[in-house]
């Protein structure tokens, strides 16, 4: 009787201990990646290859999503702003929402589900099929050869993708606001330029996306490396990458916003 009451508590305790344990392991893992980054960045070809898989192959989803998000912002922004007679500020609204929040956050969420999950699945499968072990036995450190290039590729790709997302979003807002609705072209851009500050908006947005890039890629490579080497283990790790990344991105976004703006 008492046992059935205590079982959920015990389960909860087990989960928390496990979470702390994994957090510690992940931190040690990050240190290991940084330690072996020297030798893997010296062979930059490896990282370039991963930039192709993580960054270039994410381009289409980033471009299309950015365009649609910008168009939605244009429509909704116009509907709301025109009620207050300030439809002229549409450019400022679109640019500020994208640069400060939507660009970095949505690009990171898309990156986590497109490239992060692929990284986890790939590393997890390499582990399950003994490829990581084989590398280790061939005196090649898998963290230096497999993990570190993917980590740096993610860190490089994320700000680039966020910047492209922003540009596409602003272009989408321009399409709806100026081309479809017929706002004045010059007002759209000048209102935007008046409202947007290079340092506090553009640079801070890029710093955000850089931080998200580190977080998402670390989660992705860690989940892959830590995956149980079975089919179920790898698929579980892939799901965890997407879920954990999403939560971490949104939580980090709050913290960064509180610091920056």
């Amino acid at each position: 009787m008492l046992d059935t009451l205590l079982a959920p508590l015990r389960h909860l305790g087990h989960l928390s201990v496990n979470a702390v344990w994994r957090l510690g392991f992940a931190s040690r893992f990050l240190l290991a990646i940084l330690r072996f980054s020297g030798q893997s960045l010296a062979r930059f070809q490896l990282t370039i290859r991963e930039v192709y898989f993580a960054g270039v192959l994410s381009l289409i989803i980033i471009v299309v999503s950015g365009l649609f998000v910008g168009m939605v912002l244009g429509l909704q922004g116009y509907n709301t702003l025109s009620r207050f007679g300030s439809a002229d500020a549409l450019g400022a609204l679109v640019a500020l929402s994208l640069l400060r929040e939507l660009g970095p956050v949505l690009a990171a969420l898309l990156f986590a589900s497109r490239a992060g999950s692929a990284m986890t699945a790939e590393i997890g499968l390499m582990k399950a099929t003994e490829q990581l072990e084989a590398m280790n036995v061939m005196a090649v450190n898998p963290i230096a050869r497999v993990v570190a290039p993917r980590f740096w590729a993610g860190v490089i790709s994320m700000p680039v993708l966020a910047a492209i997302f922003n540009v596409m979003g602003i272009f989408g807002g321009y399409l709806v606001g100026v081309v479809m609705i017929g706002l004045d072209d010059g007002t759209f851009w000048s209102q935007m330029q008046n409202a947007v500050d290079l340092h506090s908006d553009v640079v801070n947005g890029l710093i955000k996306s850089l931080v998200f890039g580190v977080a998402v890629t670390l989660i992705a490579v860690f989940e892959g490396y830590d995956a149980t080497p079975t089919a179920a283990g790898v698929s579980g790790a892939t799901t965890r990458t997407v879920v954990t990344s999403a939560l971490v991105i949104l939580a980090l976004d709050f913290v960064l916003t509180a610091f920056m703006f």
């Binding site: 499968l125 490829q131 005196a139």
Partner: peptide, 20 residues
């Protein structure tokens, strides 16, 4: 240990070829 492994060959049960 890595030096020792460089002079050693290991054939895994299922080959463990790098699939990429």
């Amino acid at each position: 240990l890595y030096e020792h492994r460089r002079r050693m060959g290991f054939l895994f049960q299922f080959g463990a070829l790098f699939t990429d």
